[in-house]
Amino acid sequence: MSILKTTNLTKRFGKFTALDGVNIEVNEGEVYGFIGPNGAGKSTTIRVLLGILKATEGTAEIFGKDAWSDAVEIHKRLAYVPGDVNLWPNLTGGEVIDLFVKLRGGNNKNRREELIKKFDLDPTKKCRTYSKGNRQKVALVAAFSSDADLYILDEPTSGLDPLMEQVFQECVIEAKQAGKSVLLSSHILSEVERLCDQVGIIRQGKIIETGSLAEMRHLTRTNLLVETKQPIISIHELKGVHDVVQKDKAISFQVDTEELDTVMKHVTQFGVVKLESAPPTLEDLFMRHYEDNDSDVRRGS
């Protein structure tokens, strides 16, 4: 069942088109990774979804309701954590958490205490004394201690240390196991890789790649590291081979998935001693999309 769905979502600020026909769908119990460089439109999309910005064209629906006109209804079941958390300097972290929980209308004291402990947050300090990471913890505790059905997280871990990053990932996994949905915008690709079922890559306001990680990998290249008895010749000339690097006796390169068979046949002629193959990391996928600006826009299917 679709929890969050945007159809042809477009947002213009004057002449500037920030979002150009964005389609995203997050289903129940699914974690959707939303990645893209700065200024690509991630936060704009999220703000439209929160009913803070009004879409110029297209629709944004959460729980089957319109993100703009039914914002209040939707927000009762939604929790949001921004990347840049600004809090009231003269309130304590604990006060802010309670305020947020109260405004949503739900109360889970045990969960709050548990999370404060887990995130190692001192709720008695004034917000002005918090570092970026600690302000983020306040927002995360407020979000995860509420009983939401959808979590929208906009680069929530940019200020957290690796230990807290771990705690955060546990929270997301717990939410997922409880059947909750998550929209996670992130720069930390290993995090997305670990947590997300579906991934969407946005660039210049357009979704240029979307699908499950497995699907996206299938479309792309495999990393190979081969060591042979005789040196491999003319590997460069084969179709679908990229980024050839000589490493001591071995050679590493990437192969387009559809050419894998031909390339392997060629390589075996030289007497394979060692062969390592790895699926492309999300980083590889990501970099591929951003390095060659002129490349065709691929669509996941």
Partner: peptide, 15 residues
């Protein structure tokens, strides 16, 4: 401007 309204508005709070 400080981004606090954004968090408030993500809660069930009227526009």
């Amino acid at each position: 401007e400080d981004g606090r309204i954004e968090m408030i508005r993500s809660l069930p709070v009227g526009r």
